[in-house]
Design a binder for these strands. Sequence first.
DNA 1: CTGAAAGCGCTTACAG
DNA 2: CTGAAAGCGCTTACAG
Lengths: 338, 338
Amino acid sequence: MPTLEDVARRAGVSTATVSKVLSNTPYFTAETREKVLRAVKELGYVPNLAARALAAGKTHIIAVVFPYVYDAIFTDPLIMLILQGIEAECTQQGYNLLLSTPRLSDEAVDPIYLQLVQSGYMDGIIAIDNHPRVSALEPVHQRGIPAVAIGYHPTRYYVRSADQQGGYQLMRHVLDLGHRHIGIISVPETMHPSIHYRLVGVRQAAAEAGLDVQAIPEWDGDFSTPSGAAAAAHLLTEHPDLTALVCLNDRMALGAIQQAREMGWRVPDDLTVVGYDDIPYAAVFSPPLTTISQQAPELGRVAAQMLLEVLRGGHPEPIEVPTHLVIRQSSASPRSES
Amino acid sequence: MPTLEDVARRAGVSTATVSKVLSNTPYFTAETREKVLRAVKELGYVPNLAARALAAGKTHIIAVVFPYVYDAIFTDPLIMLILQGIEAECTQQGYNLLLSTPRLSDEAVDPIYLQLVQSGYMDGIIAIDNHPRVSALEPVHQRGIPAVAIGYHPTRYYVRSADQQGGYQLMRHVLDLGHRHIGIISVPETMHPSIHYRLVGVRQAAAEAGLDVQAIPEWDGDFSTPSGAAAAAHLLTEHPDLTALVCLNDRMALGAIQQAREMGWRVPDDLTVVGYDDIPYAAVFSPPLTTISQQAPELGRVAAQMLLEVLRGGHPEPIEVPTHLVIRQSSASPRSES
DNA sequence: CTGAAAGCGCTTACAG
DNA sequence: CTGAAAGCGCTTACAG
């Protein structure tokens, strides 16, 4: 492969000149600039990134890290959609993406990950914090690497989804349809801050509508589809007067619908069921699911933009990405006779 | 951050010695080795990867590339499961993963991708070839970078899923249950080699069972859930005697089940429906879907192992990863009275 | 407006 | 068994 020196020789200038012309330094005559550019083209020169990284101290690599806390992490549509947003923005701005999924636990930090962080191989890091008790960011901060977190871990630069808004929108929609006997399928509130805030929003809407928040039936699952089915079975058995189920993620909502159907309830005729996340499958399920979109690709894109801003020396403010209510066919007004 | 030189000074040896000890060169006294290791530990030395890459000509970066041909690529569970397998193997063997999703089309190659390939930034490439007419591998071969393809593009080193076997297993299962009136929901056979081979397997099983292969009702979708529903509507209307539907991917199978249910057929009581891929949702759908697992993580792991073998100078043979029949509740024997 | 030269932090023949 | 020295291919003050 041709090097800078080859280009310089062919163009009849110094390597310094070639380097500067390629990095768009001003002050060069159009003629020089053109000579260099022509030589570059003729030789098919492409800069060696390792050399550039060593000399400039910048690798143009952004690492995306998410702790490998459970097997299904690579199939979590949310994470993948976020990744997509990050990828689009980074690629467009000339950065490459390194993927790291350190095996983190409460005590130990993955030694391979630690090496990577300290190796100077990345200009910045975007951490997808999907787990409440574990953060990949501590060694990053120690090393002084610019970082942006997506989620709730304490750090200077972060982007979050407007969970409280989402919870509010979701409950508000169900209330606006006329429902008053509503059950909630959640996960233990302390499990994750995002769940906490969604519940805050849900309860806020309920209170505004004059409901007794304490009296709302609630049952916890564990995010999985079967757990949603189990929760629905419990709630519908104990509270047969319910006309709506508000689920704090889509997978539990799908399970709840399946369970309700097996118990003889029709959705949405007899029972409204709404979810949260707008996973791809929500749109094609039968019936298509009413849910809250976190705009996951946007979360990723915004995080990437924020990090690139930090790399340019800026000090951006944290950002909360708004949620959207997506109304489909799993929600309807309660039947008048009820 | 401390450098090799710092370590050398502290240990009272040359940088060459430190470098060699760290790369496990033999011939050093236990004493020297220990001095070096102690200094490394005391200083918290971590090698600078950019410098190492420049000097050694190896970056220890593996690029995973899949053409960005449609928006949903980041939500394709298959790709993500493959990625998971690749990640596990690479991380374990000390390689880092770079993610690249070039925007490829029939004529033009993404210029950013081209730069990346020619920049010497990656030791090897794993290409996930999900699209029949477009390959990310050509510039890679030109540059002489070791590459492994997952899929059907012509290249020396590749791993494939045993599509014909999968098709055979799937049809065989349905036949073994006693079905003889079977419809096929596919996509246009020329759309992708993997589909072609699955159909070859399906027909082989049908022929072995004495069915008239030409007479089997078949309708094409486009991989999507709604298209599966449409295909089922057509087939069940035109051929009300069908007792089973063999779908060439899971999403179409889910659509087919939903459609059948809306038309008043019960699955599996009135109709057996089977899919292909074993996407995560297949296991929790109601009813859980009988399907073929491609063992996607295994595909990724095997591809990574193959590439690392090539990087070590080996010449591994292409590998076909076997498929597995996963029997769940969407398939059953036809009712005796039919 | 352009260039000479040092330096980024490693690895690797080559000597001894 | 260990070290001196060149070199990987760039960038960047510093001069002029």
